[in-house]
Each structure stands twice: as C-alpha cells, then as structure tokens.
Design a protein around this nucleic acid. Structure first.
Length: 576
DNA sequence: GCTCAACGCGCC
DNA sequence: AGGGCGCGTTGAGC
C-alpha cells in the first residue's frame, strides 16, 4: 500500500495557492520530488492517484482543512492518516517519544472564516508546515509506535480516528436532510406564530402571565433563575433549585405550567426559528464534527447542537423523495464493551442475545430487569447512592471480573493515575482534564498514594484545624470524583472505539454495496444513512455486517454479541 | 461594551 | 456523594 503526502506547496506571494503530492515509502520517507498542482487541479489528480492505486492512503496535517477542498471538487479520499489526530493519540500514549514536529491541532475550525485561521492551505501568508516537516512527522509517528500488540492497537486507533475524520468531513459536506416546513409547523403548533426577536411567542407569553399570577409575582422574569427561585420560595415552595428534577417532587398548582414553560422555552431558544435561520442551508443541516473532541474519544460538535437534537424535533429530519432514512443503534453497547474488555465470562454469557439487562436480571436479580439495569449503570458510572449502590454487592458476586475491572480503574483515578481504553487512548492526568473532572488534590496537592490521607495542612501558617479538615474533605471528594471519571473513561472510551470502527467499516462497505446511499449522522452509538430506496435493504445488511466486523477487528474471536437494532422511515423520529 | 461563571437542559 | 458533552440565558465583574 502506498502513502502519499498531501501538503501546501511553497508559493511566491501573489501566486495562486498550490498543492504538492509526494509519494512516501514504507518507512514514511519521501520517494521522489512529488507533483505540484493548483488547488483547482487537485481533486482530479487525487482521483487519478486512487484509480491507479485504490488502496493508497493520504497523509495530511488536518483532514478538516485538506479534505473539504477535495469534496467540493468531487473527489473522495479512500483512506487517510491524519497527522494531527495521530499526534494527539501518541501524545498521551507514548510520553517518552520525541515531541511532535507540527503544532497541536486547534480545537475546531470555523468554516465561516477560513481566511482568519492559521490553516494549512493559507500559504503563503501563514507559517504552514512544509512537506518536509510533515513527512518527518509521519515517519516519527510510525517509529514511535511500540512493537507488539500495543503498537498494533494504537495503529488501529490512528486509522479509526482518521477514517472518522474523513466521514466527519463528508457528513459536514453533504449535510443532514432537514425539512424546514415540518420544523416550522412544529414550532407554530407548540409556540404559536413566529414573533420578532426580543418578544415571546404567544404560548410562552401566556404561560409567563399564568406563572406570575400563580406565584403572585407580577414583575418576575421566569427566564431568570434567581428571580424564579425567589418567587417560588415566597410562594411557600421549599425547593433546592429550579431544576426540573427537584420541582417534580413539589405539589403546587404552579408546577405543571412551569414545567410546560421550561420545555417550550427550551424549544424556542435552542431549536426555534433562530436555529433554522442560523444553521439550515438548502434543506441541509451541516454541523462541524470534532473527531475525538471528547477526552474519552467520543466525537463532539460545534454549531447548532448537532449531538443534542431533541426527540420532538427529529421529525424534521426527513429523507428526500426516493430515499429513506435507515437508523441503527448498538443495543446496550457499554455493558457489552465491559464484558469484552474485562474478559468476564459470565457477563459475556449474559451479553449473548439481544436483552443483556434481562439476562443480568435472570442471573442476579430474580428477573427484575429494572433493578439489573440500575445496578449495571451504577457500576459503570460510579453510583454511590440509592438502589444502584445497594445492588452493587450482588452484581459483584455474579460478575466478579467485570466489577473488579471497574474498581481498579476507579482506584487508579483516585490515586491520580492514568487509565487507558482498549486500543490505548489515555485518560488525561489529573488537573489536565477539561470540564468537571479536575482531578484529585487540585491546588492542595494530589494524594500521594492509595489511602494516603494527604498533607497535614494544620501546621502551615494561616490554616486552622477546621480549614485543614475542610481542605482534606474537599481533596478526598475530588479524588473520588476523578475515580468516577476514570471508571467511566475505560468503558465510554472503548465503546467509542467500537462505534468508530463500526462506522468506518460501514463507510467502506456502503461504497461497494450501496453507492447511492450516504452516511449523514453519527451519534455515539447510532448511525443514520440517507439511503436510496433501492438500496435500503443492502444498507441494513451492511450495518449488521459492519457491527460484526467491528467486534472482530477490536476483540478478535470472543463470545460477546453486539446486536444492532435498525429501523427505517421517512423521518428520524419514526425510524427509531 | 465585553467576557465569564453558574445554571439548567438537550443528547448519549 | 452518577460519567461525557454543547449551548442559551442571566447576571456579575471588568
């Protein structure tokens, strides 16, 4: 298999941007001078290379920069090696390796203002990497992979993220078919006619007036959480917050209309007419996907909340005439992944067949499926309270290897350690993780080892005993929080690898068996294909076959099933 | 005028 | 005292 490096060529100021394609040998070294062409000529050249060499791989710095230009020119890459994503994988996995020769990739790239980005193809004004630098980085990455199975897994992980990046660019290019009329009819039915910016639609205005009356708070703004909370308290409602969850416990005439207000307000602000104006182009929604944008390796997205489309709004996702939406999701993916990565034979047995939770229930919970589900989810998320905690011992007795695997991951995190997914993606070090998982210790210092109570701060000037105790409590709470993070990381991250493998396998398969059908959406454990009606059956078969291939590629021949449930319909809401 | 944190809720 | 996200609003602070 040949690899070709695709990079921006040096060009003199004022010259049109040029691209260069350099063949690489097996070691990743340039094998020749390469071919230099204009941007407009590039898609045809890429297609010609692939016709000659259908198994070739394109090596480039950032798929999000290089690939859209090819897609716009009508060319599709068969496979690629994304140097940025691969460097990101290596950075965590092979800390002793030399530093990358290219700068870290930006979190995301704005399509609206590409000229303001330091992107690869903005040459010559920006300091883009040279072909020589990129070839050297490719060589460095191949050399940094350890020998043996760990290296092979990391290599597979790089391939998967790279394939994901190709698909992400393709799905962004094609867009998700979206019917504005259906969406607008839904908005009008729920909210009333569209109103000018700055005012509330009729239904929201009515409900707001009702809330003010019921709470006897004529000046209250229900969109202001502090004002709402004060008004609720004044009305004698004892609630910890204005959260839906807390309010459900309360008995008061205001609760029902308040819940309705919150739901409609959410629809209005997150997926209302403004959303349509901002994100819909020519009947398609074009979200920016960020491959491995989540620390666990899951995809993230920017713009329009692509991964949080509410169920009610999904009816607006509609197939074109002559097409159908085929939607598949992996059933109970995470516990099945747990069975595979922990090699728990009993859990693997339970994972044969389509209803894993019932099988767990039959083994450990006298057939109580709900209890089994709560217990299993609690074990994977680190639940420490309620029924999930109460059922933990029974789960541990029945599935000792799986529970020990999770406990080990949690203890590693509590010590401030690092865990890895099945293919070797590493968790961030404590304090490196973005968001809530800030790691144990924090500014007060991580606990040194398991059981270490931490430094005695009471000797330090300015700390009272009470402050020292509070600091220690906070430090221990942070350690437990990081333990829950690493506990979940190993499962969520490995599941993301399986799903990306499933998705990449399907991408290859569809080009063979359903060339007029396109993958248009990917949501953690769910794939949507906009299928030509003549190909819908072939798409379904491909989805099942790809799931089997993903399991085999990741885990080999193990006795764990990964069933996918598939539905098809004209719209997304009906297809699930 | 801007940025940022907190809150709350949508998805898995 | 349950993991991971994105995003809209409000309100505080600069």
């Amino acid at each position: 298999m040949t690899a070709y490096l695709l990079a921006a060529a040096d060009s003199a100021p004022g010259d049109p941007a040029r691209r260069i394609v350099v063949p690489l040998d097996a070691a990743g070294l340039p094998a020749g001078r390469g071919t230099e062409v204009t941007a407009a000529q590039l898609p045809a050249l890429v297609a010609a290379f692939q016709d000659n060499d259908p198994a070739c791989r394109w090596v480039w710095e950032d798929t999000r920069v290089s690939y859209p230009e090819l897609l716009r020119g009508g060319a599709e890459a068969v496979r690629c090696h994304d140097l940025g994503l691969s460097a990101q994988i290596l950075r965590g996995a092979v800390p002793q390796a030399p530093a990358p020769l290219i700068p870290p990739r930006p979190a995301w790239i704005s399509e609206e203002a590409p000229s303001q980005q330091d992107s690869l193809f903005d040459a010559p004004k920006t300091k883009g990497s040279t072909p020589q630098q990129l070839a050297a980085e490719y060589q460095r990455q191949l050399a940094a992979l350890p020998q043996g199975p760990d290296g092979a897994k990391l290599r597979l992980l790089m391939s998967l993220d790279s394939a994901g990046a190709l698909l992400a660019a393709e799905m962004n290019h094609d867009g998700l078919p979206w019917d504005r009329a259906t969406h607008e009819a839904l908005l009008e039915r729920e909210l009333g006619p569209r109103v000018p910016p700055g005012s509330r639609p009729a239904r929201l205005a009515d409900l707001a007036e009702q809330l003010k009356l019921l709470l006897d708070a004529p000046r209250m703004n229900p969109d202001s959480q502090p004002e709402l909370l004060r008004a609720l308290r004044r009305a004698g409602i004892d609630t910890a917050s204005t959260r839906k969850w807390d309010l459900m416990e309360v008995k008061h005439p205001v609760i029902e209309p308040l819940m309705r207000y919150k739901k409609l307000q959410r629809l209005f602000t997150a997926n209302g007419w403004g959303w349509l104006d901002a994100w819909l182009r020519d009947g398609r929604f074009h979200p920016d996907y960020v491959v491995a944008g989540v620390v666990t390796g899951r995809w993230a997205s920017h713009g329009g909340g692509a991964l949080q489309i509410p169920h009610d709004v999904r009816s607006a996702v509609r197939a074109d005439p002559g097409h159908v939406l085929v939607v598949a999701d992996a059933s109970q993916l995470e516990p099945r992944i747990l069975a595979a990565i922990s090699a728990d034979r009993e859990l693997a047995q339970a994972a044969r067949g389509t209803d894993l939770y019932q099988a767990i229930a039959d083994r450990a919970f006298e057939g109580d499926r709900d209890l089994a589900k709560v217990a299993m989810l609690g074990a994977m998320y680190g639940g420490t309270t309620g029924p999930s905690a109460a059922m933990a011992p029974r789960l541990a007795a029945t599935f000792p290897r799986a529970t020990a695997f999770l406990e080990e991951a949690a203890r590693t995190g509590e010590r401030g350690g690092i865990v890895r997914t099945w293919l070797g993606r590493h968790s961030p070090a404590p304090g490196q993780a973005g968001g809530a998982a800030t790691g144990p210790g924090g500014a007060l210092g991580a606990p040194g080892g398991g059981g270490d109570p931490g430094p005695d701060l009471s000797d330090d000037a300015g700390f009272s005993d009470a402050e020292a105790l509070a600091a220690r409590r906070s430090s221990e709470a942070q350690a437990r929080s990081f333990g829950r993070f690493t506990r979940n990381f190993v499962v969520q991250g490995s599941a993301a690898e399986w799903a990306e493998c499933w998705m990449a396998s399907l991408r290859t398969r569809l080009r063979r068996v359903a060339p007029r059908s396109r993958q248009v959406f990917f949501l953690h454990d769910e794939i949507m294909v906009h299928a030509h009606q003549d190909e819908a059956a072939a798409v379904q078969e491909a989805m099942t076959a790809s799931a089997e291939e993903a399991a085999r590629l990741l885990f080999g021949d193990i006795p764990v099933d990964f069933p996918v449930s598939i539905g098809q319909a004209q719209d997304y809401a009906s297809a699930k």
